[in-house]
């Protein structure tokens, strides 16, 4: 029912579709950035703590930190791609 209502509204106002798409895309990317933002903060913060405690393990910790960042960041980047998909 919601869909048919939306369809009727979009036919009445053609600009509305583009506007809603933009809003949806913005919300999608914004929401996708929350989790990875917290996650990367945790990863880097703990890596710094580990480096401060054991400076001799710095090389290994840095490599592992980049791996952790890469895996966490991927979610935000999926959101970024979704932003372009939702907009077009």
């Amino acid at each position: 029912m919601l869909h048919s209502l939306l369809l009727a509204v979009t036919q009445l106002q053609p600009d509305l579709k583009a506007g809603l798409q933009s809003i949806g895309a913005g919300i999608a990317y914004g929401a996708a950035a929350i989790g990875p933002g917290i996650g990367i903060g945790l990863v880097v913060g703990n890596a710094i703590q580990a480096m401060a405690r054991q400076p001799e393990m710095q090389g290994t910790i840095r490599t592992t930190m980049f791996l952790g960042i890469a895996f966490t960041e991927a979610l935000a980047l999926f959101g970024f791609v979704l932003f372009f998909l939702a907009k077009s």
Binding site: E73, F78, V81
Partner: peptide
Amino acid sequence: SLAVRLLAN
């Protein structure tokens, strides 16, 4: 994810 990570950045 390997491809999208590089692309999106």
